[in-house]
Design a protein around this nucleic acid. Structure first.
Lengths: 152, 152
DNA sequence: GGTGAAATCTACCTAGG
DNA sequence: CCTAGGTAGATTTCACC
């Protein structure tokens, strides 16, 4: 699918606010409401706009500790790694997990109620998994740039 | 503000899909549409629901390389660091940036069109900044757990 | 690009604990 | 008195022109 400059502008707009009406979107793009709505719908059907997520204030729900946890595996044996990815799936504090190139095999993004909860997650949940060799957690002190739109 | 179990259930639901109608939300929560809408509105006004963002498929807009870039600073002098944070703000490929405890001072999340673009960002944009001492970038191979709702 | 029917939101109202 | 459910007018969407 080919995107023109107006499409890219639309994608930036809905990433900042998914609740814009077709009317408001049209004003930003210098389009009529019907054209703006039509373009948005086309991008949804093409799978480029995947959906919309509400943004929650973590402090509002008592999650004051954010951290990134790097995990190095002792083995790459699929059966062993599977026990680890299962734990990822089942731990609600782990909201995102990526496999990375380089020395750290996994990067986890976690939200906890307090430092003790983070400590428990690392030492009682992640480290005891046989496939895990080493864990390093870094606490987020400040978010300098908060989730900007993708560079389209 | 105090949240009951229904509020937490609502927050999980709108994080998965912010476009749910009050009707649909009510069905999931065993509430009438009017009550579901009222609760959502209350959580918005309390600032717990901050808004909604569209989720874009990165590949759909030609961004096939995702990476995390760790940056260690040579100095903590505010004026020097400022030049770095300004670059963060001005670089569209850098979508998120956090300051962390531990050896790496900043963690950047970046999206690029290709490996060459990532290489240029690191070597021609970030590394030349005087305040920057060391940069290590790790490319995302796979997203194991994709942005789950916050554990509420 | 515009229009109208259908659906949605939201402010207001009523009932029950 | 406070919370839940229902209703009607205004707003938004979307298929069609």
């Amino acid at each position: 699918m080919t995107l023109d400059e107006t499409d890219r502008h639309l994608l930036r707009a809905v990433q900042e606010d998914a609740q814009l009406t077709a009317q408001e979107l049209g004003e930003r793009l210098n389009l009529s409401a019907s054209q703006a709505g039509r373009r948005r719908q086309r991008l949804e059907q093409a799978g480029i706009i995947r959906g919309a997520r509400a943004v929650i204030a973590p402090e509002g729900v008592g999650l004051v500790v954010q951290a990134f946890v790097q995990v190095q595996m002792a083995t790459h044996d699929p059966a062993q790694v599977r026990a680890f990815t299962r734990t990822i799936d089942l731990s609600p504090e782990i909201v995102s997990a990526w496999t990375l190139t380089g020395e750290a095999d996994f990067l986890l993004r976690v939200y906890c109620a307090d430092l003790a909860a983070l400590h428990r997650l690392v030492h009682e949940v992640i480290l005891p998994i046989p496939a895990v060799a080493r864990v390093q957690s870094q606490i987020v002190m400040d978010q300098q740039k908060p989730d900007a739109p993708l560079p389209t």
